[in-house]
Computed example of a mutant assay.
Amino acid sequence: MAQPSKRQLEKHIQQCAHDSANIVFVNHARERMRLRKINDPMVLETLRKGIIAREPEPDMKAPGLRCVMERYVSGVNVGVVVLVDHPAPDLLVITVMEVTKG
């Protein structure tokens, strides 16, 4: 099966994120969220309304693609790295960061 386009992945993530049961956070992501003062609602909005600004990359440890969803939320440019095994609805949040443009 051909790899989905960036736009198709973006739509897939946005749709799957509307059901929070599809979203799983790894411990590293939770630690980074605490450290960077980024909360669950900010991450959820980023996944539901954000865009993929960078090219998705294959993950070395698990099947699927690493996608960085980005969105400006509550005064912060939030980046959420999510592992997507398209077409499965599960979204694994790997890390969360503040994205700097420059």
Rank of each mutant, 00 (worst) to 15 (best):
V76R: 15
A29C: 02
T100D: 12
R66A: 08
M97S: 13
V68F: 06
A17R: 09
P41Y: 00
M60S: 14
C67R: 03
M60P: 11
E31N: 13
E31P: 00
G75K: 06
S74C: 11
M1W: 00
V68Q: 09
V78D: 05
G64W: 05
A17D: 02
I23G: 01
K37A: 06
V96P: 11
C16H: 08
K11D: 13
E45M: 02
Q8Y: 07
R32V: 03
V78N: 08
P41G: 00
S74Q: 15
P56A: 10
R71N: 12
N27Q: 12
R7V: 14
A17Q: 00
T46C: 01
R32K: 15
V26H: 10
D59I: 06
V81W: 09
K61S: 14
G79E: 10
E70L: 05
I13D: 11
L35V: 08
V80N: 03
K101H: 12
R7D: 12
G50A: 06
M69D: 00
V93W: 03
P58H: 08
V99A: 02
K6P: 09
S5R: 05
M60H: 14
P41R: 00
E57T: 14
R54E: 04
R30C: 07
M33A: 05
V96H: 11
L91Q: 05
A29E: 01
E55F: 09
M1L: 11
V99P: 04
L65C: 04
V68L: 14
T46R: 08
Q3A: 12
M42Y: 04
L9D: 05
M42N: 04
M33D: 02
K101D: 10
L92F: 07
A29Y: 10
H86V: 12
T100R: 09
H18P: 01
R30F: 10
V81F: 01
M69E: 00
A88K: 15
G50F: 03
L83E: 06
A62I: 06
P63Q: 11
N27C: 07
D90M: 14
Q3E: 13
T46W: 03
S5V: 09
C16D: 05
E55C: 04
